[in-house]
């Protein structure tokens, strides 16, 4: 693996974790009766940026490197299901994250106080945030399994 590819892999993981951390912060804030609008906007923006950059870096790594030697090594190794199930699932469900985060950010930037002061809408946004967070955790753990299966 070249230095550039290693950097892209590190960026993919770290930026994804930052995105999940931002979603966690968002969920904790949305559980408050009167969350800070500024905090919600900044957290959702960090999540969007984190996931989009993670998508780009991971996507480039996948197309230029993973699809060749890494995929072959996993398929020939003791856990071929790590690619067949976890990578296949991860590369599809991960795509939801940038768009869900973008939808959340739009809600906070354009809906503002009107949305957050309405308990029903705030709870709906919380549910979406938690679902996105769970998808993020699934993607992260899938990544650990996939990397652990490279032999």
């Amino acid at each position: 693996m070249t230095q550039t590819l290693a950097t892209l892999l590190i960026a993919h993981i770290v930026l994804g974790l930052i995105g999940i951390g931002a979603l966690f912060a968002l969920a904790m804030a949305l559980l408050k009766k009167m969350p800070s609008m500024r905090f919600l906007r900044i957290s959702s923006l960090i999540a969007v940026i984190g996931f989009i950059l993670s998508w780009i870096s991971g996507g480039y790594y996948y197309v230029t490197y993973y699809g060749g030697p890494v995929k072959a090594a996993i398929k020939a190794g003791p856990n071929p299901w790590a690619h067949a199930f976890f990578m296949e699932a991860k590369e599809h469900v991960f795509l939801l994250l940038p768009f869900i985060s973008l939808a959340l950010a739009c809600a906070f930037f354009f809906g503002g106080e009107r949305i957050v002061s309405d308990d029903k809408k705030r709870h709906a946004l919380l549910a979406i945030t938690l679902i996105a967070g769970l998808i993020g955790v699934f993607s992260t753990l899938s990544g650990v399994i996939i990397s652990g299966s490279v032999r």
Partner: peptide, 24 residues
């Protein structure tokens, strides 16, 4: 946050130094 980020730092290090079996 420090625990999670450094913990995943170890996982990346294992992946990049050929110690992938530790991830499972």
């Amino acid at each position: 946050a420090l625990l999670v980020l450094s913990g995943f730092g170890f996982l990346i290090l294992y992946r990049l130094t050929g110690l992938e079996e530790r991830l499972l």
